[in-house]
Amino acid sequence: MDVILFLIFAIIAVVCAINVVVQTHPISSAISLVGVMGSLAILYLTLGAEFLAAAQVIVYAGAVMVLFVFVIMLLNAGAETKKGQSSMALFLGGPLLVALLILLVWFVQSRYSETVHFGGFRGGSAQDVGRALFTTYLLPFEVTSILILIAILGAIVLARKEMD
């Protein structure tokens, strides 16, 4: 049952991810990315990360991707026209990519034989995350607020009508 659940969503995630990369129209890529995020949210659930699953849907799929779609629509971005790849990307990126994939798959397969059972970890509820967030991780939590402030400030600086 767990295996089937994993496989279904893993395959959805991979297919969607491939779609993100191969679709020429950004809007299709964006929709596919939402698919990846959704299936990942389910996988988070199987790993016992309830809070993160919710956050994934709300923050990522809900907020970030909406922003993306909004910008795509706003700019009325069409499909990619130019198909010629820059040679540097092909020559440098291709081998790098294959090496990365082989390396990662190899080393990941060679270890970690623990298995995941649905419900095998119950420490990821909102309560648990919340407690950690306001004790051990209080500092990063507070500091992240600066980050949000910068994001707001940055968006204002870049998108404002004119300098004064």
């Binding site: 049952m1 994993f6 991979v14 993100v20 990369v21 990846v36 994939l101 798959v105 970690y112 034989s113």
Partner: peptide, 22 residues
């Protein structure tokens, strides 16, 4: 019923990462 090896998750993660790089 057997569970899912954790390495499957990690492999999925590696694949997605690589797709992202691509």
């Amino acid at each position: 019923m057997s569970g899912v090896p954790i390495s499957w998750y990690l492999t999925l993660s590696a694949i997605l990462f690589t797709l992202g790089v691509a």
